[in-house]
């Protein structure tokens, strides 16, 4: 019995701790995920038009946080009908089999005053790889913005198979930039 009370107490404490971390939902109109690939030594920019972000986050207690991002890979737009047609194929994103990518992180730590690092797992084209996502946090009365930039290697996710594995024509590194506006939920 004494044990049970202890356990309940711990659970309550944990729940209370969790309750401190505010729930944030994405405002799509103020949010953007861009990426820049390399095509024959030229920058080839694109965007994911559809994605969603949820965040449980208290800037002063980042340890209690959780970041969940779902990206509709099929909403990728690289500004060229020909390129958009090519990237949907099995050698690239394989829209038919892997329409969605996800990033989940429960390990978020502060780097300095308003900058944080979310360490999680990116699931993309059926591959799961650890990924570190740095972001800057800014907060006003009812909204907040997270903003950051990172580099993702396409190889480990099998983006570009066969002849496309070589990185001299289409570069191996893809720069990703994001700005997500969040509103306090509830």
């Amino acid at each position: 019995m004494r044990r049970l009370i202890w356990l309940l107490g711990l659970l309550a404490a944990a729940g209370w701790q969790h309750a401190l971390a505010a729930d944030w939902r994405m405002d799509p109109s103020g949010s953007r995920i861009e990426f820049v690939a390399t095509f024959e030594k030229s920058a080839a920019p694109g965007v994911f038009k559809e994605f969603d972000t949820r965040l449980q986050f208290d800037p002063d207690r980042p340890a209690q946080s959780r970041l969940d991002v779902a990206i509709k890979v099929t909403s990728a737009d690289m500004g060229s009908a020909q390129v958009n047609e090519a990237i949907r194929g099995a050698e690239w994103f394989d829209f038919a089999r892997y329409p969605q990518a996800e990033f989940h992180a429960t390990d978020i730590r502060r780097i300095d005053s308003n900058r944080y690092l979310a360490r999680g797992i990116l699931s993309l084209k059926g591959a799961r790889q650890p990924l570190e996502v740095p972001f800057a946090w800014s907060e006003s009365a009812q909204s907040a913005t997270i903003e950051g930039e990172l580099t993702v290697q396409r190889g480990p996710f099998g983006i570009g198979t066969g002849e496309w594995k070589a990185t001299n024509v289409i570069g191996g590194e893809v720069k990703v930039k994001f700005k997500v506006r969040l509103r306090r939920a509830g």
């Binding site: 095509f39 030229s42 920058a43 080839a44 500004g79 060229s80 020909q82 390129v83």
Partner: peptide, 13 residues
């Protein structure tokens, strides 16, 4: 029109 990134001889955009 096709909006293909291109640099002349991989050098000059």
């Amino acid at each position: 029109a096709a909006n293909i990134p291109f640099r002349i001889f991989w050098l000059v955009p």
